[in-house]
Amino acid sequence: MNRGIYIIANDKVTDHAIALLNSIRLYDADTPIVMIPYDDNYHAIADTLTKHYGVQVYEDLDFIDRLSNKLHEAFGGKFFARPNQFRKQACWFGPFEEFLYIDTDIVVFEKIIDNLNYLENNDFINCDYQHLGGIANVFSPTVLSEKVFTETEIKDIFNGGFWGSKKNLISEKDLYEIFTECAAHPEYFDFSQKTSDQPIINYMLLKRIPRRFNIVKRQGKAPGNWAGTLHFQTQGNLLFDSTVNQRLQYLHWAGIRIEPGCPYWEIWQYYRNLNPSLPPPVFPVKVKKSSWQQTLNQIKSPFRFLKK
């Protein structure tokens, strides 16, 4: 049975993708990786990732276009902050019988593909503590008051940046039916923080895939992985979670801009620069506002409601 990893990217996230691929290849030289283009601006990053890491571009680009068009038919063009995130649903129809999907704002600290071993007894895996924060950024309280889901079911919500499953477990017809259901009930979802695909993917998971497993609920628990968690301890180029006395499996800068001064910047910088044949990233220097600009902004702020 063949296994592989999917990522979604374009030229804009080249540095992120390089950091992720450097970390994957440090621990695993062989697992095949397929890139799903986020939009039409992907040729430069595709060339870089193919040359240095053996990444292949997803073959059925017609399907990706079809998926995008159906999404717009169901929801319209202004419903989501980043509708192209839904292109990751092409994972269900690609070459791998079992697969991991990984966002590019992640670096890994192990042979990450081995987590697919959990699929022996499950159909879907994820690995995060999103559920401990309640249903924010996924659902509104309506899903409970109208009994769309039970209290037990919503404890399985997850972050859409890292998950794994099996080919064709979700069909193209399933996807379009889910889009239609969700478009008919926008009151079920929490888009207040401009999340895009995460609420819809969680709805689909809870409705269509009963055999699911969150790795952090394994015996002995598992480490955290969000870069907004500041108690992780650095040991060399790895991170440890002292609350469970375990090395992190991966670190995810979800909702955090990766730039000098961000949490665990040195960790990201290390993995980004592992390949000496690639130039280091360049980050624009932030221009500090002068005192008069700051004062002007403070004056303007109370009157912003007058703008139409």
Rank of each mutant, 00 (worst) to 15 (best):
D103K: 04
D128K: 05
N202F: 03
D15T: 13
T104G: 10
Y6M: 08
I36V: 12
P280D: 12
S301P: 10
Q294K: 12
L71A: 00
L248F: 00
Y264K: 04
P32K: 00
S277Q: 14
K307L: 12
Q130G: 04
E120Y: 14
M35V: 03
S290P: 02
L100W: 04
K300A: 13
T180E: 01
G94P: 04
L175W: 08
Y118T: 08
H252T: 05
H52G: 03
E266W: 04
W268H: 09
D174F: 06
H43I: 14
L26D: 02
V138F: 09
I5T: 05
T234G: 13
S242W: 14
T104I: 11
R211W: 12
K78N: 13
D197T: 10
Y53M: 03
F162N: 07
R87S: 01
S23E: 00
S196Q: 12
P141Y: 09
N159C: 08
I36T: 00
A17T: 09
F179P: 07
V107A: 07
E110L: 04
F109H: 07
P83M: 05
L230Y: 13
I215V: 15
N121S: 15
G261E: 08
R3E: 14
I135Y: 06
D60C: 05
N115H: 15
Y250V: 01
S171G: 05
I209Q: 00
K300S: 12
V138Q: 07
H185I: 01
F79V: 03
S301I: 14
G261A: 00
F99V: 07
P279Y: 05
F63C: 00
F162E: 03
D123K: 11
Y27L: 11
K221E: 15
K308M: 06
L119G: 06
R66W: 13
F63M: 03
R208C: 04
A74Q: 04
Q293D: 00
G76V: 03
Y129W: 13
I215S: 00
A74D: 07
K288A: 03
E146G: 07
F75K: 12
P37W: 10
D40T: 03
G134C: 09
L169K: 13
D103A: 05
I125L: 13
K78H: 13
P199C: 10
S192N: 03
M1H: 14
P199E: 02
A227S: 05
W226P: 00
Y203E: 02
R82G: 02
S290Y: 01
R304W: 02
Q85M: 05
R218L: 12
D156R: 02
V287W: 05
D47S: 14
F124N: 11
Q298D: 15
R218V: 08
K221M: 13
L61T: 15
S242C: 15
T50M: 11
H131C: 10
Y38L: 11
E177L: 00
A46C: 06
W253T: 02
E181W: 06
Q198Y: 10
Q246V: 02
N84F: 00
G77C: 07
T14S: 14
D62N: 13
N237A: 12
G54N: 09
L274S: 07
Y27H: 05
D197K: 09
R304I: 14
E59T: 15
V148Y: 10
L274K: 11
W163S: 06
K307R: 14
